[in-house]
Design a protein around this nucleic acid. Sequence first.
DNA 1: CTGGTAATGTGGTCACTACCAGTTATATTA
DNA 2: TAATATAACTGGTAGTGACCACATTACCAG
Lengths: 247, 247
Amino acid sequence: MSITIDPYTAVPKYYQLASILRQKIEEGEWQPRSPIPSERQLEVMYHISRTTIREAIDSLVQQGFLYREHGRGTFVSPRKLQKGWMELTSFSEDLLKRGMQPGQIIRSLTQVIPPVNVLKRLELAPGSTVCRIERIRLADGTPIGLQTSYLALGTGQEITLEDLESSGSLYRILSDKFNIHPSEADETLEVTLATPQEAELLDIPPGAPLLLSERVLFSQERHPIEYVKILYRGDRYQYYTHLKRRE
Amino acid sequence: MSITIDPYTAVPKYYQLASILRQKIEEGEWQPRSPIPSERQLEVMYHISRTTIREAIDSLVQQGFLYREHGRGTFVSPRKLQKGWMELTSFSEDLLKRGMQPGQIIRSLTQVIPPVNVLKRLELAPGSTVCRIERIRLADGTPIGLQTSYLALGTGQEITLEDLESSGSLYRILSDKFNIHPSEADETLEVTLATPQEAELLDIPPGAPLLLSERVLFSQERHPIEYVKILYRGDRYQYYTHLKRRE
DNA sequence: CTGGTAATGTGGTCACTACCAGTTATATTA
DNA sequence: TAATATAACTGGTAGTGACCACATTACCAG
């Protein structure tokens, strides 16, 4: 990450500036609640137009790093709000962020005709086949969740056991191999109790409370990509989210 | 909602335009996945500069109503993604959106010195007093959750029983009476089991699974306002979010 | 000391301009 | 006819210049 703007690279200037500013925030050079240089000052400092400055600041405000006060200035958000931005993350990313080591036991990888509710959520025609992946998810080596994914892939697109075992993260495979970039998701959370089978796999007593997450993942083009159901051990998992009020 | 831009009002043009476009989307005039007029066309249609057009479209893209494709156009997001935007909502708002009637039984409203972990989350000095509200939350008349709020109000700011009973929504009181506008929140969700007291209040058997939500609410100025803990009946409540991937 | 006022600095809005970078349809050419 | 080039779109990035709305400060009159 440079400390000046390079006008000859393909990277947009507003993006370069945003990176520079974010770095100063993350490294603590600019303390929480203190003002950053004004837009006119930044204009001189980096020889960029105010239009571009504002575009950079806009994105950081959007991401919660900065906040503006009309007539006063632009300020660094207090730590609390900098991290844990409401992000769509994969299981692996999620766990790594919490400082735990993600792992998995792949139970099956098959082509199946999914249940109708799954078909509906994936906006597929009845009888369509999808790729189903069953995995036990591990945190620091111990089971933490049971995950069942249904993937709506294009014809010819296929995920192999090797892909899964080498990368671990489904999102990475989608991105690298198929150029599908997860963008948004709808998720519901509720409470259930473990069936004997689930209890066995998760190494908990039958009837223990579980956190059930159901998520439909959408690509950048807003096509449903994946329906995934995860049963988390209630005693070992906490769901975190950051909410923003509209307007 | 007008259908033309009024240059003489205090409402910014980009905001007026965004409202017009959003209306056309919500009323179905523009169908999902179909392109909206190009930015150059809108420039002519509404006699607004492209800068302003893009600002309006930006906000709608941000809110998930539209999506852009470089070189192709700007399109209406499919229905699925238009609604249920990841919003910070109050309990009442939340329930109303699900088509249920919110209600409450106020169990207590007192000034207390909260537990240390609450003080910490509210960034208050040890020994500070806050307003505590205990409520049983109802959906269509039946108990659905136990809510305990700790409010960090300014000196002289006070919430009365009448306020609560007449409005029902704490967010509305904060907004109307104190000019405090909830903006963001950190929330965690986990699973617990009902204690005998909790079970009694929620009309469920002791040991029944509950969804425990803990939320810290922040004002526009990023000051912590409220720490609230809600125990939801596991059999009657489902949590919903919409996630977006960063970048 | 108090209250008003003007200067100055901040972010907010908007117009106009230019060019770049993808996409698509059409015309051209082999 | 089929491949290729081109023109005419689309959104993306960037600069300049202007004025507005709000906050803070310093100064002045009472």
